[in-house]
């Protein structure tokens, strides 16, 4: 055990002795801290803040993945592999792990920053979920923000987030339309799609798949779901216009 730790310690010393590697690790940590500062101090929408959270997780994962890759390279006798080749392996792995961890952590962070809603909007979502035969109704959370916005997260415990700003500017029917749109996303299980499209865009600058078209199609399905329940798309369209103004 101690021998293993000593071995790891000396490998870490060797890793940090390389100024290029140390610079890359420090740059990743500084970028992660900068992202936190930006999302706390500047005015961004919830979607941008979510993207920052995923990027933050990936940046924090970069140093251990980089170190582990360098270490394993040494173990299998491929020490001669250059830095560029190592990074070509490390960056995709970090992004994939960032996505996987992000899908677990980001919904949790959103829950921690919001208040559960147990009133009429939760009852509305419970009723609609029952009607659809969903295994469990998503939890509704209130986001303390004056900016009108709504989003949902998937996973084992799906949740919907609506801001106080949204409740202030939309009518009851429009709020229901937005909640149904988010319920449509949860029913389709399309939450992982956006981060996956970000990942695809990062890995393949000219992707074979068109991520924007996939996301647009999911949005269209969620809109169609809300319109089919309300038997009109007037409320959803008005809500979208108001929230985009």
């Amino acid at each position: 055990m101690w021998g293993m730790l000593a071995h790891l310690g000396s490998a870490l010393d060797l890793f940090l002795a390389d100024s290029t590697k140390t610079t890359l690790v420090v740059a990743a940590i500084v970028s992660a801290v900068t992202l936190i500062w930006l999302s706390r101090n500047l005015d961004f929408s919830a979607k941008i803040r979510s993207a920052f959270m995923y990027a933050h997780v990936a940046l924090l994962l970069f140093p251990p993945v980089f170190f582990a890759t360098t270490l394993s390279c040494k173990q299998v006798g491929l020490c001669e592999v250059g830095l560029t080749q190592t990074l070509l392996f490390v960056i995709p792995i970090t992004l994939i792990l960032g996505l996987a961890f992000g899908l677990l952590i980001v919904p949790l962070l959103h829950r921690l920053r919001s208040q559960p809603e147990s009133g009429k909007w939760q009852r509305f979502v419970n009723g609609q979920s029952d009607r659809l035969g969903l295994h469990k109704a998503p939890d509704v959370f209130i986001v303390d923000s004056g900016r009108p916005e709504a989003f949902s997260t998937g996973g084992l415990k799906p949740a919907m987030f609506i801001s106080i700003g949204m409740l202030e500017v939309l009518t009851r029917r429009q709020i229901e339309a937005v909640l149904l749109h988010e319920l449509g996303h949860i029913q389709e299980g399309s939450h992982a799609l956006k981060p996956i499209t970000w990942l695809l865009r990062a890995l393949y600058p000219e992707p074979v798949l068109a991520p924007a078209a996939i996301v647009a199609e999911e949005e269209r399905k969620a809109d169609a779901f809300a319109a089919s329940v309300q038997k009109t798309d007037v409320h959803l369209n008005r809500a979208k216009r108001k929230m985009a103004e």
Binding site: D43, S145, G146, R147, P148, G165, E168, K242, E245
Partner: peptide, 22 residues
């Protein structure tokens, strides 16, 4: 639009020019 007023008030709140209670 009313939503522009809501967003602007949110920004004024972030800049500590207005306070708010729920």
């Amino acid at each position: 639009a009313q939503s522009s007023v809501a967003v602007t008030l949110d920004r004024l709140y972030e800049r500590k020019l207005v306070r708010r209670t729920i």
